[in-house]
Design a protein around this nucleic acid. Structure first.
Length: 347
DNA sequence: TATCCAGACGACGTTACGTCA
DNA sequence: TATGACGTAACGTCGTCTGGA
């Protein structure tokens, strides 16, 4: 890890630190930082073939997925960020998957009754059986015409205004009416982008899958799509966006850490300057007293941080001896996805 | 064996939609 | 009710890798 530090004055050491550090509601994250040492967790993660996504892509390493395709991963990630929903996420095993979930078509439009997550219109995730198309789409390029075609013409989700304006009595009628109106809209306006909101259950399950492996091979993608009643393209996009969000949060955490490092080192630098001035003053007033060894700088062999072996006067001036002379910044520790601190077992 | 090419895939930036205050 | 901010699904592009010709 390299720190761009300016000893002397560093009011704003890094411009990118000015960015906001807002965090998502409902998400908590734990972070860790390892310094050049392969932790046991990391080794185990590597043994299990996990691909740990980190913000550092400069030194990619390869790992094999189920089909032998290489995936770029970072070696020895310095900071690991894990995003977890604040609310306890139900853990599902493959044998007790609650999917497909009872589909709620929303209660605001009178098409069906439902609860919180179903204030939407009818559930676009409940599609006609399109497994054959999905399979083809999964094999094809994610941007293939097949998947795009299915995206464009197999989904319609009424907007809020649509739901409010239309008061269709029967569910089937609602869907049929919307589908027809949507078709007419597309005829008029051309292709319009459709966007759906994944249900809480779908998001939770995708999160669980993401914690297992943040990249998917085609088989995993297909299986996940079938389990969640989504299209493989949707699963793929979700993982792409999820990786991007993880990286963004990782960057924010890293910036915070670097900011703290900079602040600490700036303070350390300030103290050293102060000490230097004191020593110079001593030298001029008491030239013989300066026969004592001056302040020496030593470097920690493991983390390559410069520590100050202070004179008694300097040691009394600050509390550097408590921290061995190194900046008192607690380094984030590295935790693989599946081994969060609260889950770790003593070994 | 080296080179070219097509396909697949991930990263990244952007757009557009839904939700909420 | 209108509006802006925010989160995020979806898209387009580019770079990289791989396997086959």
């Amino acid at each position: 890890m390299e720190l761009g530090l300016s000893l002397g004055e560093a009011p704003k050491p890094f411009a990118f630190m000015e960015k906001s550090t807002k965090t998502n509601k409902g998400l908590e994250f734990c972070m860790g930082l390892g310094v050049g040492v392969n932790t046991r967790e990391e080794k185990e993660a590597a043994d299990q073939g996990r691909c740990l996504q980190t913000f550092q892509a400069a030194d990619p390493r390869r790992c094999e997925d189920g089909e032998g395709r290489d995936k770029t991963v970072s070696a020895n990630p310095p900071v690991q960020l894990d995003l977890l929903p604040l609310a306890p996420v139900p853990r599902y095993t493959s044998s007790q998957l609650p999917f497909p979930w009872p589909v709620d078509h929303g209660n605001s439009d009178g098409c069906s009754s439902g609860q919180a997550a179903t204030t939407r219109g009818f559930d676009v995730n409940l599609l006609p059986s399109t497994d054959e198309i999905d399979d083809a789409a999964a094999v094809d390029s994610p941007n293939s015409i097949a998947s795009s075609f299915q995206m464009e013409f197999s989904i319609y989700r009424g907007s809020k205004r649509d739901r409010e304006s239309s008061a269709a009595p029967a569910a089937n009628d609602c869907e049929a009416e919307r589908a027809s109106s949507r078709a007419s809209d597309e005829e008029e306006n051309g292709l319009t982008r459709k966007k759906l909101r994944l249900s809480k259950e779908q998001s939770a399950f995708l999160e669980e899958s993401f914690k297992e492996h943040n990249t998917l091979n085609p088989k995993q993608k297909l299986a996940l799509a079938k389990q969640l009643n989504l299209r493989p393209r949707q699963v793929e996009v979700w993982f792409q966006n999820r990786r991007a969000r993880t990286k963004l949060k990782q960057t924010e955490v890293d910036c915070e850490y670097l900011k703290r490092c900079c602040e600490t080192l700036t303070e350390e630098n300030r103290k050293l300057h102060k000490e230097l001035q004191e020593l110079r003053a001593l030298k001029t007033s008491h030239p013989f007293y300066m026969q004592l060894p001056a302040t020496t700088l030593t470097m920690c062999p493991s983390c390559e941080r410069v520590a100050t072996t202070t004179t008694p006067a300097a040691a009394a001036a600050d509390g550097a001896s408590k921290t061995g002379g190194f900046p008192a910044v607690s380094k984030p520790r590295f935790y693989p996805f599946s081994q969060q601190p609260h889950q770790s077992t003593a070994s």
